[in-house]
Amino acid sequence: MSEPFRRGRGVKYPVPIRILHWLRAVLILGLIACGWYMAGRAEDDPTAGILYPNHKQFGILVWLLALVHLTLRWRYHALLPHAPETLKPWETRLSQAIHWLVIALTLLTPLLGYAMSSSVIDGDGVPFFFLSHVPEFLPKNDTAFALFQTLHRYCAYFLLACVVLHIAGAVKHRLQDKGGETDVLPRML
C-alpha cells in the first residue's frame, strides 16, 4: 500500500481487525465479570453447572481469537495505522505496551485457566462448544491447582487493569482531541 493510505486522519484499521477487536472486548469483559461472579459463589451454587463450563469454553475461544489477532496483525501489518505523530513519546510507549500486554494476557490467562481446570481433582474437564472436551495434559494435583488458580486470577485482574487503561486512553483522546490526530477511536469504528 502507498504511504498516504497508511498515514493521516481518517485511516482505519482493516475490517477484520476491527470486528475482532470488538468481539474480543465483549468476550473479555464478559469473562472477567463471569469469573468475578463465580468467585463469590459457593461450590454447590446451582448456577455453577452453567457458568463454569461456559467460562471455560469462552476462555478457550478468547485464546484462539488472540492467535487469530496475532495472525491478522502480521497479515495486515502494512495496512495498520501508525501511532499519531502528535502523541507524546510516553503516550506512544504506554499505548504500545498496553496493546501488547492485552495480547499477551489474552494468551496467558486462558492457558492458566486451562491448567487450573486440567489439574483439579474431581474436575469435569475442559469443554469446548461442540467438542466433547479439550484433552487434559496435566496430572491431578491440589497444589498445582491452587497455584494455577492464583495465577489465573491475578492475570485476569492485570488484564482488566490494562483494558481499563486502554479505554481511558481512548476516551481521554476522544474527549480532549475530538477530530484531532490523536482522536484514535474512529480508527477502530
Rank of each mutant, 00 (worst) to 15 (best):
Y13T: 11
P14H: 05
V15T: 09
L20F: 01
W22N: 05
A25T: 11
I28C: 05
L29V: 09
A33L: 02
W36K: 07
G40E: 05
G40Y: 10
E43V: 15
Y52N: 11
H55W: 11
L61V: 15
V62W: 03
L64D: 04
A66M: 02
T71S: 04
T71W: 08
W74N: 02
W74I: 15
Y76M: 08
Y76Q: 01
A78L: 10
P81Y: 06
A83M: 10
E85T: 15
T86Q: 09
L87I: 09
K88E: 02
W90N: 04
V102W: 05
V102P: 00
V102K: 05
I103T: 14
A104H: 08
T106R: 07
L111W: 14
Y114Q: 11
M116E: 10
S117Y: 06
S118Y: 04
S118H: 01
V120K: 12
G123E: 06
V126H: 02
F130Q: 10
S132F: 14
V134W: 14
V134R: 09
V134T: 12
D142M: 01
A144R: 15
F145I: 04
C155N: 09
A156H: 07
F158L: 15
L159P: 04
L160A: 11
L160N: 05
A161L: 11
V164M: 05
H166A: 02
I167Y: 03
A168C: 00
D177R: 09
K178N: 07
K178P: 03
D183K: 01
P186V: 07
R187D: 01
M188C: 06
